[in-house]
């Protein structure tokens, strides 16, 4: 079995969630590398695009921001923010978009906080804010969220709802007037999680080799169903080779 790092495992776990033909919205960092890996391994017909308006960027080098000149080179279209978000709100293209997100806090319905910890008006810790995250979470067919698996990040109640998940349950989005999409999976440094078809509550789908479901629960601020979980398949030699040689050879993101 090949040696791999935790970051590589997380990246490949996310890449496997991307389907061929998806339009992949990504941010900076690990989400971009996951999108590049999927395109090179299992989803050759996927299209990577950025909220800044760059569509199908070649990405010869890893960009360090979604406005990086590296996302502008060898694209099919260099548009603007208005175009990019319209493609997600669009009734034909929006449902085909998968958004890859990250956040400071998540709750059991996949709602995300990337704005502030503590009182919004007197925050203990202030973060960057929504950026395009709220727009993506509002509009697109499905989202994948990267999280660090910690009790303070998997919380009963968010300090601030920046991006809508399933809101307060199965009818939450419909009641609020949101489009039909929503969170599909969460990938952490310990596990993969999905959302139950009926209740829209988070449940464990996979645990990483060497991690027990109990350890996963011990690091969360709420209970989830672990009965359906299986061990996550480690990255194959081929997946690792593509990831290392084609996606981030300088290891700017993978470390």
């Amino acid at each position: 079995m090949p040696d791999y790092t935790l970051k590589e495992l997380m990246t490949i776990a996310a890449a496997r969630e991307i389907r061929d033909g998806d339009i992949v919205f990504c941010g900076t960092g690990i989400s971009m590398v996951a999108a590049m890996a999927a395109k090179n391994i299992s989803a050759p017909n996927s299209v990577i695009f950025f909220e800044t308006g760059a569509i199908d960027s070649l990405l010869e080098e890893v960009p360090l921001a979604v406005s990086d000149s590296r996302v502008m080179f060898w694209t099919s279209v260099n548009g603007n923010l208005a175009d990019a978000f319209a493609a997600m709100q669009n009734r034909v293209t929006g449902p085909h978009v998968v958004g890859i997100m990250g956040a400071a806090q998540i709750d059991k319905y996949g709602n995300l906080n990337s704005t502030a910890i503590g009182d919004y008006f007197k925050p203990k810790v202030r973060f960057s804010g929504s950026g395009g995250a709220c727009d993506v979470a509002s509009f697109v067919g499905r989202t994948i969220t990267f999280m660090q698996h910690e009790k303070r990040k998997f919380v009963q109640k968010l300090d601030y709802i920046t991006s809508p998940g399933w809101l307060d349950g199965p009818d939450g989005r419909k009641k609020a007037g949101l489009p039909a999409g929503g969170p599909a999976s969460v990938i952490t440094n310990m596990a993969t999680m999905g959302f139950d078809e009926t209740t829209k509550e988070m449940y464990l789908t996979g645990f990483f080799p060497g991690i027990t479901p109990q350890k996963i629960l011990d690091n969360m601020g709420f209970e989830i169903d672990v009965s359906r979980a299986k061990e996550v398949e480690p990255p194959t030699e081929y997946e690792l080779q593509i990831l290392r040689e084609k996606c981030d050879p300088q290891r700017l993101i993978l470390g």
């Binding site: 978000f85 008006f121 709220c134 509002s138 709802i161 920046t162 809508p164 809101l167 489009p179």
Partner: peptide
């Protein structure tokens, strides 16, 4: 108009 942010604190706060 847009459909973005329905149900979130971006509207509430």
């Amino acid at each position: 108009p847009t459909r973005s942010s329905l149900g979130t604190d971006i509207i509430a706060k």
